Simulated scan of single mutants.
Amino acid sequence: MSTEEGTHTLPDGLKAYSKAWKTTESPRAILVFIHGFSDHCNTHYDLFPTLAASGIEVRAFDQRGWGRTFNGLKDRGNSGSTTVVLADMHSFIASVATQAQAQSIPLFLAGHSMGGGQVLNYVLHPDSPYRQAGSQPKLAGLLVLSPLIALDPASRPWGFIVSAGRVVAKLLPRMQRHSPLTQKSVIADFQADDLCHETGTFGGLAGMLDRGLWLENLSKNQLEGVDILPMWLAHGDQDRITSHPATKRLAELLAEKGDVVFTSYEGAYHKLQAELPDTRAQFCRDVSNWILGKSGENQSKL
């Protein structure tokens, strides 16, 4: 396994930090990974090296306003509107898809937390660039990890705070707000990482919550005519940041229309790839096994 750092040019010209975890031999699959709120692509412990060791190349980038992708302190957390967020994702995914398709390698997409909500919106929302004719990267499957569909009650702000925040988001969308996360696992590492700055903008936070709200209210009627990718959704049942029940409900809805599996990790918290050693190792195996299982199905169709 080797790593390779680089940059990806986003649609408006901003240079995003990117990184690849490469396999020793030709990859059996490629995974694009979308990180969460106040996170970046170098915080996922054993997950990416484990996947690379099993033949799965990982590609990731620091999203706009997060990690190393910002033009100064004033731009920290300035992720932009949902249109910008999905366009940024689409440009990165499409660039990887071109290579994967040229080499006949199955391409998978994964997202954690805020990123989990983003990848669901990316493949399901009618306004997503993925859903537009002629622009759809070929994806073999979707992995959705502790997604932001709804916040857990322990992390949910009061209604009047949300309402006031939405007013500010309309008037001053780039105004920054410190929004600390309460997570029981790896909190020391998280707090020691200067790139996990817990600072969003009112506009970005409103967009993040709106993307979750759309997923939470998703109905069968809205899924009519939508091709559901093979999906694996995973969530720790002790997560106190995003809602485990909300993920389970959405997985059950999607399973009525496609190959969708929900895995619950007993006693685990928000970041499964950073859990205690036994849970972390099992989670890494589960991710690898699901991708390789679906890779075999897709390669037989090539």
Score class of each variant (00 low, 15 high):
S295V: 08
K220S: 09
H235N: 12
A251Q: 07
I161G: 11
W290H: 02
F48L: 08
R64V: 00
S163N: 11
H112F: 09
T247D: 12
P180V: 00
T43L: 14
I149K: 05
G65Q: 01
S2K: 15
L229T: 00
G6T: 10
H35A: 09
R174Y: 07
S104H: 09
G36Y: 02
D286M: 12
A251S: 13
V287C: 06
A29W: 01
V85F: 13
K248P: 09
R68M: 07
A251D: 12
S38I: 01
W232D: 10
L73H: 11
S91H: 08
Y45A: 12
D210V: 14
M89G: 04
A188M: 08
L107S: 02
E275M: 06
G72M: 14
S81L: 15
V261P: 01
I291F: 12
S288P: 05
Q238E: 10
G36M: 03
F92R: 02
V226Q: 09
G165P: 08
K301V: 13
L151R: 06
D227M: 08
K15Y: 03
L276G: 11
G65K: 00
I30Q: 00
M1S: 11
L205I: 13
R280T: 03
L172P: 15
N42P: 01
H235L: 11
V168F: 13
L143Y: 03
V168D: 07
A20K: 03
E216H: 12
T69S: 13
E216I: 01
L139I: 06
S95P: 08
Q118I: 03
L272A: 07
L73R: 14
A97M: 05
R249Y: 12
G111I: 02
A100E: 03
T263C: 11
R59G: 01
L10Q: 06
S179K: 06
H8C: 11
I241C: 00
P126L: 01
D237W: 07
F37N: 02
K22D: 05
T50A: 09
D237K: 04
Q132V: 05
I161L: 15
T3N: 04
A169L: 04
T279K: 07
Y265K: 06
G165N: 15
G165M: 08
M208A: 14
Y17M: 13
N289K: 08
F283N: 03
D193A: 15
F48C: 02
F33I: 08
L254G: 00
R59A: 10
A87I: 00
A87N: 04
Q273P: 03
T98P: 13
T263E: 13
L10W: 07
S155I: 07
G204L: 07
A53D: 15
P230Q: 11
G159Y: 08
D237S: 12
H125R: 01
V84A: 10
K271P: 06
S95E: 11
F37V: 01
P230H: 03
